[in-house]
Design a protein around this nucleic acid. Structure first.
Lengths: 186, 186
DNA sequence: GTTAAGTTTCAAATTATTTTGAATACGCCG
DNA sequence: CGGCGTATTCAAAATAATTTGAAACTTAAC
């Protein structure tokens, strides 16, 4: 019914771009197929069905289903209703910046916060130790470790601030950050 | 000979911190053991031998050797000579910021640059296509893809600028960047 | 209510990564 | 040179991650 043009085979540029995005994303800790599937949706003028994607990459139906639902969980792909079509169709989120900030705020932030907690806990224990231990060697080792872990903590907090800045910037508009970075180099 | 105190067993804080760093680093695309080993070296007052590390984590000698040489390749761990000791000893790079910027500049940058190249190549092809194709549908699809890939390219370039800023900042001193980020939030 | 197209799930198979440990290489010392 | 203590390498084993495909499930249409 919908005048979709379910392309059978990928254009060379589509193949190349989806591949490079897949690689980038894999490097980033996601599955390569997530990047490839997202890219094809992103480059498609119309929403595509699971079947279209299956054909495009020669994946199994199961793999496509799982990849799509994972992409949906990250909010980078959406299901869309198409008038008079039985099957589901999918589109990519096209606001790149929003996409990235969502992932940052959900995933990276969680990791960094866990690290911060662990560092803080370790600092507390080492502080107790350096005050209470009878053994001078232990005290001095605790001292050193305290200093070093404090450094790690500082770094982790910097990371958290960066993520927060990125995310809150993205909520409004990417421009300010972009402009800052441009300025930085000149 | 050297009055090292090759601890047999890790302190709880060492175990906890090395674990969390391992996780963070794994998340970042390195092996967990790289993070754990680096951390123990970082928290040690004296250089440690491969054997010390093997014992600390219960790894095989092969694994330790490989982990250390990988860490050395990334420049985050160094071999040190110890007077009158036969075996090799290792210390961690303690300048965290320098460490990170080295990894960024070598690894992330490579990836981003590859992506930029691929995007530029795709844009050239699509440009040719939208000018030359006889088929209006093809032209309009090429048009759309051109726009979208241009977005990706812009993003990738932004990423490259961020990495460059980070790295060049780190070369001198992390402070400016830190201060900027603090300012950003206030 | 039944059928059929489409989707999701999940255990098993495949594939990729990491670890082991024995063999080999290295380097120092007498 | 030869022996000893270590370090490195690498094929095989273990483990982890991904993919498959068939069965179970959902939902729209009749």
């Amino acid at each position: 019914m919908a005048k979709l043009d379910p392309q059978r085979t990928l254009w060379p540029t589509e193949a190349a771009v989806s591949d490079v995005v897949g690689r980038l994303i894999e490097f980033w800790g996601f599955k390569r197929n997530m990047g490839r599937v997202w890219t094809i949706l992103y480059l498609s003028p119309d929403p595509l069905s699971a079947e279209d994607l299956r054909r495009a990459f020669g994946l199994s139906s199961g793999a496509v289903s799982m990849t799509l639902s994972e992409l949906a969980r990250w909010g980078v792909v959406r299901k869309v209703w198409i008038q008079g079509e039985r099957r589901d169709f999918y589109t990519a989120e096209t606001q790149l910046w929003r996409m990235i900030s969502r992932v940052f705020s959900e995933r990276e932030r969680r990791e960094v916060i866990a690290a911060i907690d662990a560092f803080e806990g370790a600092l507390r224990e080492l502080d107790a130790l350096r005050r209470s231990s009878a053994d001078a060697d232990v005290r001095s080792r605790a001292e050193l470790q305290y200093e070093r872990i404090a450094q790690l903590l500082e770094l982790a907090r910097l990371g958290r601030r960066m993520l927060d800045a990125l995310v809150s910037t993205a909520k409004v508009d990417a421009e300010p950050l972009v402009r800052f970075l441009l300025g930085q180099r000149s």
